[in-house]
Computed example of a mutant assay.
Amino acid sequence: MPSSADWTAVINLIEEVMTEEDLLSSAVTSARTNVREIAALPAADIAGHTRGLLAAATRALADRRGPTDAELAFVAELAATRARQDVPIEAVLMAIHVASRVIWSRAREIAAIREIPPAALLDVRELYDDWAEAVRARLISEYHAVKLSQGTRAGDREAVLLRRLLAGGSTAVLAAAEAGLPAGGGLWLLTARAGEDAAVGRLQRALRTQRPMLLSFDGGFLVGVAARPPAPGLIGADTAVGIAGPGEPGGLAALRRLAIAALAAAELTGRRGLTHIAEVAVLAAVADRPDLSGALLERHAAARTALGAQLRPVATAVRAWLEADRDAALAGQRLFVHPNTVRNRVQRFTEVTGIDPAGTVGGLNAWWLCGGWLGGG
Rank of each mutant, 00 (worst) to 15 (best):
R153M: 12
P118E: 05
D197L: 11
A62H: 02
A302M: 10
V342H: 09
L374A: 01
L234V: 03
P229E: 13
L330I: 11
V337Q: 13
L364T: 12
G169S: 06
D238C: 02
I243W: 03
T275C: 08
W188H: 15
P229V: 09
A259I: 06
L13K: 05
S170C: 01
V352R: 05
R343W: 06
I116A: 06
A320F: 08
Q333K: 10
E90C: 06
L215E: 00
A244H: 00
A55P: 01
L311K: 06
A62W: 04
R345K: 11
R114C: 00
S4R: 14
G250D: 01
I96R: 08
A56M: 00
W188N: 09
A281Q: 08
G375P: 00
V342K: 10
P117A: 04
L215W: 00
M94T: 15
L162Y: 07
A177W: 09
G371H: 02
E90L: 07
L165I: 04
I110E: 12
L214F: 06
A145R: 08
F221R: 14
E71T: 00
P117W: 07
G242P: 07
L189S: 03
N34K: 15
L374E: 04
A40C: 10
A302K: 07
T33P: 06
I46S: 05
P88N: 02
L203T: 07
L222E: 05
W131M: 05
R211T: 14
G294D: 14
L24C: 11
L166N: 02
A112T: 09
H276V: 00
G273Y: 03
L307A: 01
W104K: 06
A134E: 10
L122Q: 15
Q347H: 14
A47M: 12
L335M: 15
D156G: 11
P42K: 11
T360L: 15
D291E: 14
L53Q: 09
A27F: 06
E77N: 00
T33R: 14
V102I: 13
R257K: 10
A112E: 12
V146F: 02
D22Y: 05
A320K: 08
P249F: 01
L72C: 00
W321L: 07
D63S: 13
L207S: 10
L330P: 00
G359M: 04
L207Y: 10
R289F: 07
G186K: 01
A240C: 08
R51P: 03
Q150I: 02
L121Q: 03
L162I: 05
T353A: 04
E248Q: 14
Y128F: 15
D197R: 12
L214W: 06
P313I: 09
T81N: 10
H97S: 15
V282D: 13
C370N: 04
A57K: 00
V124R: 09
E16T: 08
A295F: 09
A284H: 05
A80Q: 01
V225Y: 09
T152W: 15
I277N: 03
V17C: 10
D69N: 02
V280T: 10
H300P: 10
P182I: 02
F349C: 05
V92F: 04
R345E: 11
G251F: 03
